[in-house]
């Protein structure tokens, strides 16, 4: 169907960093305090619409819909050798670490190495420091991570799957940075409407959750 708009994204990082939480927040907009650790991998998909300002004609922003195929991998060390299976054909890799856990940040280096070795070419990387709601227990200073991301030439975001901070932004950034040729502007108005409707209904759902 809309193959051209499909984008495979793989979530990588040490166990307990919150990969599944990010995926669930993004796709279902929900958060469980205790998540079963991922066995093997799990798969999610979701379509989002982004507005892209056209550089040439800056008056009007074009809308694009991107369908994300999110592969949430298991973080446990045992699974590391299996990761290549999941990032084959991926357009973006989200490297997640826990800002309250230094080792998970230190592990990013090895993830990058592995991606370089086995990953597809022109793979987009994004470093995500999760659990920024737990700022008091922070072990990795924001600056350090930012510098690191700069060195690796990739984007850095601090998120909180629990408080729903910046989660959607990760995917919007990815969608924005996707190379032009892989993208085709969404002409399908009805489809876009549907999605907007979808979005609004979701926010209503949010409110319900807050009150209950």
């Amino acid at each position: 169907m809309e193959q051209s708009n499909a984008c495979k994204v793989v979530l990588l990082g040490n166990s307990g960093a919150g990969k599944s939480s990010i995926a669930q927040r993004f796709v279902y907009n929900k958060f469980n305090v205790y998540n079963e650790s991922t066995i093997g991998a799990s798969f999610f998909s979701k379509k989002i619409v982004i507005k892209i300002k056209n550089a040439i004609e800056s008056e009007e922003a074009t809308e694009r819909s991107v369908k994300f195929h999110v592969w949430d991998t298991a973080g446990q060390e045992k699974y590391h050798s299996l990761a290549p299976m999941y990032y084959r054909g991926a357009k973006a890799a989200i490297l997640v670490y826990d800002i309250c856990n230094k080792p998970s940040f230190d592990a990013l280096g090895s993830w990058f190495d592995r991606l370089k070795e086995f990953g597809p070419n022109n793979l987009q990387h994004i470093i995500v420091g999760n659990k920024c709601d737990l700022n008091d227990e922070r072990q990795v200073p924001r600056q350090e991570a930012e510098v690191y991301a700069l060195n690796m030439n990739c984007l850095y975001l601090e998120t909180s799957a629990r408080d729903n901070i910046n989660v959607e932004e990760i995917f919007q950034e990815i969608a924005r940075k996707l190379p032009e040729n892989a993208m085709e502007p969404s002409n399908n108005e009805a489809d876009a409407d549907l999605l907007r409707l979808d979005k609004s209904s979701r926010s209503i759902h949010d409110r319900i959750c807050c009150y209950s």
Partner: peptide, 16 residues
């Protein structure tokens, strides 16, 4: 259709 490796989906079945 690009599902080359059966482990990507079936591993968890076998593991447990």
């Amino acid at each position: 259709s690009g599902v080359y490796d059966p482990c990507s989906f079936a591993l968890r079945w076998i593991l447990c």
